[in-house]
């Protein structure tokens, strides 16, 4: 390996490591906020799946778009979002990415190409494919990645838009994060046959990859994104991964659908951050102490962002009918015919 190549890798690897740790730190704080009854509503933890979001988003440009899911904090962080605005959004504060109107399940970060999380399972498949149609029609070279879970493969919308994406060779990558559970049900019980073959039936090139291996995910996505830009899309990737928490933060007693032993095995043996960290140390890119220092810095960042968000103001009541329509300050007057 040449020195330049190695340096390049070192920077990329450090970034990927940091981004995964940031996601984990964000989710740990979000979970604490819920447990301590400081966060309104529920949230869905991404912990355990970090290598998927980071491996993919690190292969994308700022111009590239993603659509995200109800389990979307990881995608959002990986695509470049800030802790502060994210925590503010989780707490319904004015400075949140969506001025407190979206919350955990609807964070959108237009500036970084995140077209938004979606609380309807599979709800963003049309949006992602439409963004790809936009790119092709307008002659832009951005690629769109559509994140969704294994549960969403049961939605008919996917087959409609895969059909059109394949017909029109759209620059879209369908990224199915198979974490083994569709809400509270094993994926085996809701999905017949092979997910990969479903995509292949449309003539779409499909891949299966270890979703706990950030480098494997990143390498594959880089290649497919490049091919999308050359008009060779769409593609499908099934990423095998695991969610450490329940379906949502309130899903605590989950023995009836999966064992503690199974959870422990994934956490102990297949944790994407631990394993990637070990390989960085093994390759002598970083020392264990350096990585611990990184972890601590990020944890402190997350802590500071939470403190900031807890103290941040809520939106003014007058915002309640703002942003209903673009170009209309207050919807209620407008709806009554005010000019």
């Amino acid at each position: 390996m040449s020195a330049a190549r190695k340096k390049h890798n070192t920077e990329d690897y450090l970034r990927m490591y940091k981004q995964m740790v940031r996601i984990r730190a964000f989710e740990d704080k979000a979970n604490q906020l819920y447990l301590s009854a400081k966060m309104p509503g529920l949230t869905h933890m991404y912990s355990g799946q970090e290598a998927v979001a980071v491996g993919i988003c690190e292969a994308l440009t700022d111009e590239d778009r993603i659509t995200s899911t109800h389990r979307g904090h990881g995608h959002c962080v990986a695509k470049g979002a800030n802790f502060r605005e994210m925590f503010c959004e989780l707490l319904g504060k004015e400075e949140g990415y969506c001025r407190g109107k979206g919350g955990s399940m609807h964070i959108a970060d237009q500036a970084n190409g995140n077209l938004g999380a979606n609380a309807i399972v599979g709800g963003s498949m049309g949006i992602a494919t439409g963004a790809a149609l936009s790119a092709k029609r307008l002659g832009k070279d951005f690629v769109t990645v559509c994140f969704f879970g294994d549960g969403a493969t049961a939605q008919g919308l996917w087959y409609e838009v895969m059909n059109m994406a394949a017909l029109w060779k759209l620059p879209v990558i369908y990224a199915c994060e198979n974490n083994g559970y569709s809400e509270y049900t094993k994926t085996d019980e809701i999905a017949a046959g092979s997910l990969v073959k479903r995509a292949e039936a449309f003539g779409i090139e499909a891949f299966q990859v270890d979703g706990q291996d950030v480098l494997a995910v990143n390498e594959l996505t880089s290649r497919l994104a490049g091919r999308c830009r050359k008009g060779e899309g769409p593609f499908f990737i099934e990423l095998d991964t695991y969610r450490y928490h329940g379906h949502h933060v309130g899903d605590i007693n989950r023995d009836y659908y999966r064992t503690k032993e199974e959870e422990a095995e994934w956490k102990d043996i297949r944790d994407p951050i631990t394993n990637f960290g070990k390989s960085l140390i093994d390759q002598k890119m970083f020392t264990a102490e350096e990585l611990v220092a990184i972890d601590n810095d990020i944890a402190a960042d997350a802590e500071a962002a939470v403190d900031y968000a807890l103290k941040a103001p809520y939106p003014d009541g007058s915002e309640v009918d703002m942003h209903v329509f673009a170009g209309v300050d207050h919807a209620l007057d407008y709806l009554r015919g005010a000019r």
Partner: peptide, 8 residues
């Protein structure tokens, strides 16, 4: 140390 919200 806070009494956590555990169930739904």
């Amino acid at each position: 140390v806070i009494m956590p919200a555990l169930g739904m």
